[in-house]
Amino acid sequence: MTNGAAYEAGLRQHGSLTIWFSEDAVQAWRAAPRTTRGGQPRYSAVAIETTLRLRALFHLAFRQTEGLIGSLMQLLQFDLPVPDHTTLRRRARTLAVVPRPLTSGPLYLLVNSSGLKLIPSCRSTDT
């Protein structure tokens, strides 16, 4: 080991997390009104799938996941509904969510209208 400071900085960066919510994800987070008979949905598929992927990624219980999403919405200053733990538990039975395995280095979470994408590192492309 020749550079202890760089090594320490690298270890701290392993805990780094960046989350982006695209504008279309914010728009898709709210459930569209139902046009048929029955109660109105509270959460969109994007909201449920994103929440369940974060739950799987961080190995959280349903109530902890609800708290995590609530904290994210508060930190990002989004006025979006947070899926409750009972809804998450019920929907998790029918929706298989398996996140990509973590790699060394920072992890970037990109939330767009198609759901959550896990990106091990941001690489610029020359195309």
Rank of each mutant, 00 (worst) to 15 (best):
R37C: 08
Y108N: 15
W20K: 06
D126Q: 15
Q74W: 06
A25P: 03
A25G: 03
G39N: 09
A32W: 12
L54I: 07
A92Y: 04
M73K: 03
L76S: 09
S124P: 07
A61G: 08
L54C: 07
L107T: 15
Q64V: 03
L52M: 07
A96M: 10
T127L: 00
A61C: 00
T2F: 09
L102P: 15
A28M: 11
R123W: 12
G70F: 04
L102D: 10
P99M: 04
Q77Y: 03
T51Y: 04
L60C: 02
Q77H: 12
I119F: 03
S121F: 08
K117Y: 06
S104P: 11
R63P: 09
G105Q: 06
S113N: 10
V26Q: 05
L57N: 11
A6N: 05
L54N: 05
G39C: 03
S22P: 06
A56C: 13
G105Y: 05
M1Y: 11
N112T: 09
A9E: 12
R89S: 15
R93L: 12
E66P: 01
N3Y: 10
R42Q: 13
T127V: 06
Y43N: 12
W29G: 02
L118Q: 10
L60S: 01
C122T: 14
T35M: 07
L116K: 01
G10L: 08
A6V: 12
A96I: 13
S113M: 00
Q74F: 07
L76Y: 07
T35I: 01
Q74P: 00
V98G: 00
T51G: 09
M1I: 09
M73L: 12
G4T: 12
A5L: 08
T65A: 04
T127S: 06
V97C: 06
K117M: 08
M1E: 10
R30L: 10
V26S: 02
G39Y: 00
